[in-house]
Design a protein around this nucleic acid. Structure first.
Lengths: 172, 172
DNA sequence: TAATCTGGTTGCTTTAAAAAACCAAACTCA
DNA sequence: TGAGTTTGGTTTTTTAAAGCAACCAGATTA
């Protein structure tokens, strides 16, 4: 029956993955942040099949993450450039990179190091913080249904809320 | 020839995707953050095929993101719980969710809203910041080869560096 | 004791991604 | 000006991954 889509899920993470979750897609975006703009450069640097690259680029353009602009005088050379929506994926890529640096490669084995251009210091770890800048863990956060929540999601929040109380009672 | 792997790439993002990039995987992790622990609950809530769920859970356990613990007295009921490595994916999921809330759903249409438990205020947007807490854009950052970089990556940095200078010259 | 729940596995089918070949327009350079 | 190369793809064929359905054994519930 092939692959299921996440379209119908009322969940921001699911919708993000519907756009970014295909194999290769996020690496293409990373490559774009690195400064790559041309079809042939993406192809060479990533080593993916050209039809797949073509699909992914089209998909990213359709979803407003890249824009395809004519770069030759004649209209047969193109560049794929990050849009504002695309540039705003920096926090996602940064969080992924930092997680991997810490947990997959480990400190002292990072393939690339990111620094603040102004000071030369390493980019601090991105974590959720409150308005005063204090770090927040998942235990400091709670979620509630938003304006776009459907009935199923509202119900799930209720279940999760009840379960949380039970667990707290059990744990003493 | 089936799907290519990212194993050989010297890149943290690629390695992160090697662990997290399969279809469904990140939704399973999101579900775990929501409090889901049981096979049957993952299956019901996500609606994915059970063999795929089984594969993904095993993969997440192998990679130290979930741990499988006996929950019954007899050893036939299990729970899948986030490890420290798993919990540390919170920044990744949060960044993804916030991007999608902003760019896919748009303000006022978010399916779920995340708040600071202590104050009840909405979680501010996660962005890269310097040590003083100032926001940094991609233009404020630069990357350099780290201790784990291979020759290919070092060369790519040199090319990117040259290209950057050229572009700056062109732009005036 | 029968039925149901749990946490899967097995077998088969469909879809998606890979490689390789191909292509037309444009540019390069001799 | 003409041969060869670059660019940005598309087409065709293979293979891997994801889906459904059926099945299963041990534990729990009625």
């Amino acid at each position: 029956m092939g692959r299921k889509r996440f379209d119908q899920m009322s969940c921001s993470v699911a919708q993000a993955l519907e756009v970014l979750g295909d194999w290769w897609t996020l690496l293409i975006v990373r490559e774009a942040f690195f400064g790559t703009r041309r079809f042939s450069d993406f192809s060479r640097h990533l080593g993916l099949a050209k039809n797949t690259l073509s699909d992914r680029l089209s998909h990213l353009v359709e979803n407003g993450i890249l824009e395809r602009v004519d770069s030759g005088k004649t209209g047969t050379r193109y560049e794929y450039r990050l849009t504002a929506k695309g540039h705003d994926l920096l926090p996602v890529l940064t969080a992924l990179r930092q997680w991997s640096d810490e947990w997959v490669y480990g400190e002292g084995a990072e393939p690339t190091i990111v620094r603040d251009r102004a000071t030369g210091r390493r980019l601090p770890k991105m974590v959720p913080r409150d308005v005063e800048g204090r770090e927040l863990s998942s235990r400091d956060l709670f979620a509630e249904p938003g304006p776009g929540a459907d009935d199923e999601l509202r119900q799930r929040f209720e279940v999760a809320w009840r379960r949380r109380i039970e667990r707290r009672a059990q744990a003493g």
